[in-house]
Amino acid sequence: MVDTLFLGIAVLTIVSAIAALEMRSLIYGGIALMGTLGGIAGFFILLDSPFVALFQIAVYVGSIAVLILFTIMLVKRELIFQKKEDPKRRYAGIGLMLIIMISLGAVIFNSGLSSITTEEPSVDYREIGEDFLTYYWPALVVMALVLSSSITGAMILARRHDGVEDEQRTD
């Protein structure tokens, strides 16, 4: 049976996910997205994985959400509140959402997943550290390279191309 804490976090996560997509203002949408990400971190704590929860809070709620909010503030004010969508497409989207929810939910309910419970202790976070540094070390190196190259790529993409910097540099 689910407990009240799980129910509260589930409601927070799903309601703020809907709010993030449906709020009129993009800024409030971004703040609602922070609620979703924080709710997921709460689920991680319920699943006895405090290390992943802290990582989620540090990376998602701490940096990605703030990055998104700053990008929204760089966009013109009218565009933040603009909400143009085709009603037909909207109803089709809601239908698609319900179909996915019901069909996947039915498959999951009828599968053997509902009988899985565990009494075993959870994974110690020391094991995760050992995994990272022994079995997964090539993946860790590749991840570091991907992160640094994507940050460099992002900066090169977002650079201004009006040539002002070049003129200043020659001076």
Binding site: I94, M97, G105
Partner: peptide
């Protein structure tokens, strides 16, 4: 007290909202 299927159901709901 929580079972695996509860978390999977929340995950399916989030996936459906994201696809919408």
């Amino acid at each position: 007290s929580n079972e695996l299927i509860d978390f999977v159901i929340v995950s399916v709901a989030l996936l459906a909202i994201g696809i919408y």
